[in-house]
Amino acid sequence: MLVIFTRALILYFLVVIVMRIMGKQQIGELQPYELVVAVMIADLGAVPMQNTGIPLLAGIIPILTLLISQLALSYISMKSIRGRELICGTPTILIEKGKLLEDQMRKERYNINDLLEALRNQGYYNIADVEYAILETNGTLSVIPKVEKRPVTPQDLNLKPPYEGLPLPVVIDGTVDFKTLKEANKDFTWLKGQLKAFGISDVSDVLLASIDSNGNLFVQAKEVIK
């Protein structure tokens, strides 16, 4: 039992490390070669995990091989346009200037129902509202609506909204992030003073405090658990 337990732990941490090294795309939208790696790694980890008859290295070596192969393909697809086309494929235009491209849909084996479903998922219920629809290499559909159907932007209304930067979380779960606090050009004394204004005397009582780009502080205190 402890043998299986230890093997499971080793393989679990190895797969977590490998997926971290492979990058964020592994857990988001996958390219075909990344999907293959994810599926194969799951199987390579699971089999030696429970079968003590298989040497652990028989699971570890193929996982590491997939890791370096994936890193190599990522590198090629990053450095070479031709390589990227070969490895990831190219995006396909399915709707051009409001017109469905039947031959492209046939080439991608993408039927009308698939297209309508993907458009609905993007919030376009009427195909007549779409100017361009592009099938991306990771299988998602990007949609450009017709000019008269796209949402109004401040530029359309000749408005100049104030700059909105990234809010900086300075206290998370009672712990002050001094690095972020410094990035916001504030210090602990300022923070304590601000928290006092919210009726909070101890930082450890704060669930979340963040500073927006205008220097305003958002504070939420922890709930008192009875």
């Binding site: 043998v3 080793i10 290295l57």
Partner: peptide, 8 residues
């Protein structure tokens, strides 16, 4: 038995 030989 819980041993290195059996784990690897």
């Amino acid at each position: 038995r819980f041993s290195l030989v059996n784990i690897f």
